[in-house]
Amino acid sequence: MFKLLKQSPISARLGIAIVVMNIFAALFAPLIAPYGETEVVGDVWLPMSRDHLLGTDQLGRDLFTRILYGARNTIAIAFVTTLLSFVVGIIGGFLAATLKGWTDLSLSRIVDVMMAIPILIFALTVLSVVGTSILALILVIALLDSTRVFRLSRAVAMDVEALDFVEAARLRGEKIWWLMRHEILPNAMPPLVAEFGLRFCFVFLFIAALSFLGLGIQPPTADWGSMVRENAGAITFGIFIPLWPAGAIAFLTVGVNLIVDWFLHVASGLKD
């Protein structure tokens, strides 16, 4: 692993640096932040100053502090959600591809039905019923997102499954779990990892969208998506406050994708 890191290109190192920085900020937010997460410290939309590095938000809270705390919620929730959606989606997709027949048919049709309903409306309906706890948020988004992952992993696994080495493993008498874990998964990695980078960013934006509609992360908890939304009005006054959380989202997205690109390059054995 360390050796791999040493050979990594500059872009990957940059990506790793960005992500590490974000995780650091998230972990040590209470120590670094000059103020409390929900503390009102001054006037509304103050410009950048020595006291308020990035100015203040629409309620007069310190924006720098909010961004640090926001990293916690945003990164953790988006990461856990994406991971969960991938676990569910990949297991479902691989099962469908290896078992075929009825398993495939029923799983695929269920996914089709779920995908037929617009994702935002689906999420709104479910969240308004089960309530807007963070756990509910994670589970609902992960489940909805896993339909996309299911489709991709099923398609990829179908291709791999048709190869002779999978048949050889079947003939050996291997159980389905081995087939999925050792024969199919390693060969399906590259497209799945690429998708992970993308999905991770989509989840961010989706949480922001839900927050905008009042069903995402609830105020006064800081998260980047809602910070953009809450401060959006400032733009009309020529104040660029909302660009800071937006920039944070973009920054992390770029970082994650730089790592994913590199991983893809290593995993697929491509030598341009």
Partner: peptide
């Protein structure tokens, strides 16, 4: 059917394929 065969039977009968490229898992 393959599913109902015993491990010992499977072990006794092995197969070699036409395309060695696809018969070996490239990640192992």
């Amino acid at each position: 059917a393959l599913k109902s065969r015993k491990k010992e039977d499977l072990q006794q009968m092995q197969m070699i394929y036409q395309m060695p490229d696809t018969a070996l898992n490239p990640r192992q």
